[in-house]
Nucleic acid binder design. Structure first.
Length: 280
DNA sequence: ACACTATGCTTAG
DNA sequence: TAAGCCTAGTGTG
């Protein structure tokens, strides 16, 4: 379930439960054995998220552990509770296990789990656009790219060098919430609208960090509020268009459309997000 | 038992 | 544009 909010949540959890603690680092599956051994027995300094990337820093180790989940990867952080095992059994393919007195974190299925030198970390970070979840981000940098681009907004929002941390759900939802046509070229977006989109991403994604899920639907737009049956619309409580192809738009009732764009499923409402409805 | 899906990204052609 | 990569859950026979 990896969009930016997931990784910020994980990074905060690791920092909170294991920060400053000496940790055991292993690779039960074996594919990160050397890297895991490099930081085993060290003190965890910090875990930080940049877009969808997580960097974990250890005392007296120059390299950072870099993790990217890809499409299928996931973290599971277990906090010991009275009456449960302090360290859970390994289940499935655990690439990396970080364990300390405060928690055990298991990483499965990542695209990247590797040691990066400081130079490599720097070059990774320069490739990333501003992240709505970081307060050191400057949305102006994204605006420079968007306002100069002929690419569709839907493509630009998924481009991690433009905005870091937005994935397929947030892209579809933020476009809908601002009634923006997904294929509108970036250069045709106006500045006030971009500012509003950015501000909305900040709110939505911060909410996602808090709740651990993506909820974008205003209370007055839920299927129940609109008099529809929530049972036939399993996603309608949470999102406007993502994975709701063929279902009625929560606002206007038109069937939600879907199309594969650059290998990813895009969802939008053809009525609410019409180019000729854009305010001048 | 298989088939299929998924909130991602990189590299080759 | 397509292929490859990584895993688990769900659905179908």
């Amino acid at each position: 379930m990896p969009e930016g909010h997931t990784l910020h949540r994980v990074a905060a959890s690791l920092s909170h439960h294991l920060g400053g603690r000496t940790v055991t680092s292993t690779s039960p599956q074996g594919r990160f054995a050397a890297g895991a051994a490099r930081v085993d027995g060290r003190r965890l300094v910090s875990a930080e998220a940049w877009g969808k990337h997580v960097l974990v820093e250890f005392e007296d180790v120059a390299e950072h552990v870099h993790v990217h989940l890809g499409l299928f990867g996931g973290w599971k952080v277990t906090v010991p509770v009275m009456g449960t095992e302090a360290v859970p059994d390994v289940v499935g393919e655990v690439r990396w296990r970080l364990s300390g007195p405060g928690a055990t974190a298991d990483l499965r299925g990542p695209t990247a789990c590797e040691l990066l030198t400081p130079d490599e970390v720097a070059s990774l970070l320069t490739r990333l656009g501003p992240d709505p979840l970081r307060d050191d981000s400057d949305p102006e940098q994204a605006w420079q790219r968007i306002s100069a681009s002929r690419s569709p907004l839907a493509t630009l929002l998924m481009d991690q060098t433009v905005v870091a941390g937005v994935g397929n759900v947030y892209r579809a939802e933020v476009l809908f919430r601002h009634r923006l046509p997904p294929f509108l070229p970036g250069r045709e977006l106006d500045r006030p609208t971009w500012d509003a989109v950015w501000a909305d991403l900040v709110v939505l994604m911060q909410d996602g960090v808090q709740s651990g899920r993506i909820d974008t639907v205003r209370p007055d737009h839920t299927p129940e509020a609109m008099g529809r049956d929530p049972r036939v619309d399993p996603h309608g409580d949470e999102v406007y268009v993502y994975r709701r192809a063929g279902m009625p738009c929560l606002v206007c009732g038109a069937p939600v459309l879907t199309k594969v764009v650059a290998g990813r499923n895009l969802f939008w409402c053809p009525e609410c997000q019409r180019a000729d409805r854009l305010s001048p």
